[in-house]
């Protein structure tokens, strides 16, 4: 549950970048023969691409960790896991 909520948060951050990028215009900034008008800002989109990839890999890593934990704590309740593992 926590992992999913973290994913939702990162989706929010990604969406915010996209919104900022498209404030000036909506068209993709690709050179072509037709002049389209207002272009979207490519820089935030380029940056958030890195963040998406990183977020995705962290997600995968955390799920693997959760799988390992699930072997001994099948319910995966964080409160219980925390109680067992704090000295």
């Amino acid at each position: 549950m926590k992992i999913i909520s973290m994913d939702v948060m990162s989706t929010g951050a990604v969406a915010y970048y996209v919104v900022i990028a498209s404030r000036e215009g909506l068209f993709t900034p690709i050179l072509g023969s037709v002049q389209k008008g207002a272009y979207a800002d490519p820089v935030p989109q380029a940056v958030i691409l890195t963040a998406i990839v990183i977020g995705f890999s962290i997600q995968a890593l955390m799920l693997v960790g959760a799988m390992k934990l699930a072997r001994n704590n099948p319910t995966l309740e964080t409160n219980e896991i925390e109680k067992n593992n704090t000295p």
Partner: peptide, 20 residues
Amino acid sequence: TDRSIWVGLRYLCVSNVALL
């Protein structure tokens, strides 16, 4: 071990949320 995985997950989650 279970404990190290839990500690690691906790660390990763906190740092990732902070970085968001």
